[in-house]
Amino acid sequence: MKRLIGALLLALLAACGEIPQPFRHDGINAAVIPRAARGVVVRPLDDGPRAARLAEALASKLREDGIPAATREVVPGALVIQGEVAPTPAGQAIRWVLAQPDGGILGEATQVVAGSAWNVSSMAAEVMDKLGPLLHGEMPDNLSAVAIPTVRLVPLSGLPGDGDTALTAAMRRLLQRNGLKPVDGDADFTLRAQAGVTPGKPGEEVLALAWTVADRNGDDLGSAAQQGAVPRGMLAGPWGSLANDIAAGGVDGVVEIVRAAQGK
């Protein structure tokens, strides 16, 4: 089950240890990587070991929440979390900023640390609580005027287990993180998926998906195909992180198609 989701996502997660990645999309064009992130880079507050531990703890919290994250820049187009430390009478205050690759600020949060001792785990959890919603599709007000392409995702149907709801939700989240805005009504683009499960090798099933993007007039612009083998029966229950892995492999192709259409 350890096939590539896609070279860009794999590069970002390489420093984070192995995760199951049974699906991939081939042929990613690096020239059309969107400005929105493939993940998040957490920059240490300074060059010291304590700051490095805090940055890694925050990156770990992001990964636990399904967000690709690392403490070094591995791929272009990643969002950035960085902070500035200022002394206070009781300890320190850290101003954390979530920024776009071009420096545009998406949100910020202030963290007050009493004394000189740092509990990096609890500090990372607090930052995640404050900035996490911005990474899960809650667009801040200061981006409301930006012309973000809208996408209507047709809910999936016919998949075993909770695949229909889990994969639909995962793709919506990743469309948002990749600079697109999922909507339920009128949209610039429509995304629909065709899925099928067939027998594979003994003890396996093969899940094949094709994500097709259509324009506002209903004309198909292109499709991104995925295929991967999973243990037989795995799809019959909750999909869990598998849904996020599959969506991560498919969203690259979807974004390529949308960006190419915008460039015409």
Rank of each mutant, 00 (worst) to 15 (best):
P133D: 08
A99Q: 15
T190R: 11
I33D: 02
I94G: 02
W118N: 06
A169F: 02
V255N: 00
R50H: 11
K181C: 11
T71P: 02
G103L: 06
A248S: 11
A7L: 13
V113I: 09
V112I: 14
G83Y: 00
V75E: 08
R53F: 02
D186L: 12
A70I: 10
P89C: 02
I105S: 08
G27P: 03
A15E: 14
A166I: 05
A169Y: 08
G137I: 01
R35N: 15
R3C: 08
V85R: 13
V85Y: 04
G132D: 06
I94P: 00
V146T: 12
I5D: 12
R216I: 01
G104A: 15
L58G: 03
V251G: 08
K2S: 09
D26P: 11
G66R: 07
L207G: 03
A78L: 10
N29Q: 14
D219H: 01
R24S: 14
I19K: 12
R50M: 14
P231W: 06
A225H: 05
D219Y: 00
L156V: 06
G158S: 02
Q176A: 15
Q100V: 13
A52C: 13
V112Q: 11
V197G: 03
Q262T: 02
T165I: 10
D26N: 14
V113K: 04
A117V: 12
Q226K: 09
T150C: 00
L174N: 10
W118Y: 04
L167A: 08
D129Q: 15
A37F: 06
V251T: 07
A59T: 09
V154G: 04
S122K: 13
A99R: 14
G228T: 04
L9N: 13
L135V: 10
P160N: 06
V230M: 01
E108G: 08
A59H: 03
L242V: 04
K2W: 09
R192F: 07
A170C: 07
D219Q: 09
V127F: 03
V254A: 06
A260L: 05
A15R: 15
T88D: 02
T71S: 05
V97K: 11
G240M: 01
A208M: 07
M234P: 01
D141V: 13
G6I: 09
P199R: 09
L174F: 05
H25P: 07
P22G: 05
G48V: 10
A147H: 12
G250S: 10
D215H: 01
G218I: 11
E64D: 12
D102M: 12
D245K: 12
G115Y: 01
A30H: 14
G104L: 14
E126I: 14
V85N: 05
L4Y: 08
D162Q: 04
A7S: 13
A214P: 05
G200N: 07
H136T: 15
E204K: 15
D252A: 10
P44C: 02
E64N: 12
E18L: 15
N142A: 11
L9H: 15
R172K: 11
A214W: 04
I257C: 00
Q226M: 10
V127L: 02
A187C: 09
G132N: 06
L135C: 01
Q262S: 00
V213A: 00
A86E: 15
